[in-house]
Amino acid sequence: MPDKHLSSQFDADLSLLSTRLLGMGGLVESQITHAIDALNTFDMELVERVVEGERRLNAMEIEIDEEISNVIARRQPAARDLRLLMAASKCVTNLERAGDEARKIAKRTRRIAMGSNARDINIAEIKVSGEMASNVLRRALDAFARMDTTAAEQIIRDDEAIDNEFRAFVRKLVTYMMEDPRAISKGLDYLFIAKAIERIGDHATNIAESVVYVVRGTDIRHEHRKQREHEVLRS
Rank of each mutant, 00 (worst) to 15 (best):
D3R: 15
D3C: 10
L6C: 08
S8R: 12
A12N: 07
L16S: 14
L16W: 10
S18H: 14
R20L: 14
R20M: 10
R20P: 03
G25D: 02
G25Y: 10
L27V: 13
S30F: 06
H34I: 07
H34V: 06
D37M: 07
L39V: 01
L39G: 11
T41Y: 09
M44V: 06
E45A: 12
V47I: 02
E48A: 11
R55Q: 09
R55P: 00
R55D: 05
E61Q: 14
I62F: 12
I64V: 13
I64E: 02
E66F: 08
Q76L: 11
A79G: 04
L82W: 09
L82A: 04
N94Q: 11
L95A: 02
L95K: 04
D100M: 01
R103S: 08
K104Y: 13
A106E: 02
K107T: 14
T109E: 01
I112Y: 00
A113S: 09
M114E: 15
N117S: 09
A118F: 06
A118H: 07
D120V: 13
I123E: 00
I123Y: 00
A124Y: 05
E125S: 09
E125I: 04
M132K: 10
N135D: 11
N135F: 13
A140I: 11
A140M: 07
A143G: 03
R146Y: 11
T149F: 04
I155T: 05
D158G: 08
I162C: 02
I162F: 04
D163S: 05
D163Q: 05
A168D: 09
R171P: 02
K172A: 13
L173Y: 05
A183C: 11
A183S: 14
L188M: 11
L191M: 14
I193K: 02
A194T: 04
A196P: 01
R199P: 04
R199D: 07
D202I: 07
H203T: 07
A204D: 06
I207E: 03
E209A: 01
E209T: 01
V211P: 01
V212L: 01
Y213K: 03
V214G: 00
V214S: 02
V215I: 14
I220G: 00
R221Y: 06
H222L: 13
E223D: 14
Q227H: 13
E229H: 13
E231V: 13
V232F: 15
L233T: 15
